[in-house]
Write a protein that binds this DNA or RNA. Structure first.
Length: 136
DNA sequence: GTTCTAACA
DNA sequence: TGTTAGAA
């Protein structure tokens, strides 16, 4: 069993995740509604989170504390995530990599630079205003 | 006892 | 976001 498989196994209920992340159930469910996370469900509709889900929630929490809204978080998360979910076993040299248009690539780089500039220096309230200006 | 959805003095 | 009601 691969390590990645292990990280993606749905293991704990929302109660555990609340303690692990210091987020309220309300917040966790709200982030799910906004597609920031997609925990698995039991037959009884109860959410089951994986280690990856928890890590993701911790990042979301950090970004929220930096003053970002859902829209901003989605963009930042996609910067690190564009998770090329590629199958490693490709007998042909034909990879199904998603192509990015030049426009998308440039926008991505621009956002990365703005995020660094805004995040590197301060940590206080100064940042909040600037970040929200970038991502709002 | 926990979690879920929906709704709001 | 908090909180609450009613159901599972």
């Amino acid at each position: 069993m691969g390590d990645d498989t292990r990280r993606n196994m749905a293991l704990f209920p929302i109660g555990i995740v609340m303690k692990l992340t210091d987020l309220t159930a309300r917040q966790i469910r709200y982030y799910e509604q906004n597609d920031l996370i997609q925990p698995a469900r039991t037959e009884g509709k109860q959410r089951l989170f994986s280690f990856n889900d928890v890590d993701r929630l911790l990042e979301i929490k950090a970004l929220i504390e930096k003053g970002l809204n859902i829209a901003g978080i989605k963009q930042v998360l996609q910067l690190n995530d564009p998770t090329p979910v590629q199958t490693e076993i490709t007998t042909t040299s034909e990879t199904k990599r998603k192509e990015m248009s030049d426009k998308d690539l440039h926008q991505l780089l621009r956002q990365q630079i703005m995020y660094r500039n805004a995040t590197r220096h301060g940590e206080g309230a100064l940042i909040r205003g600037e970040l929200s200006r970038f991502f709002h």
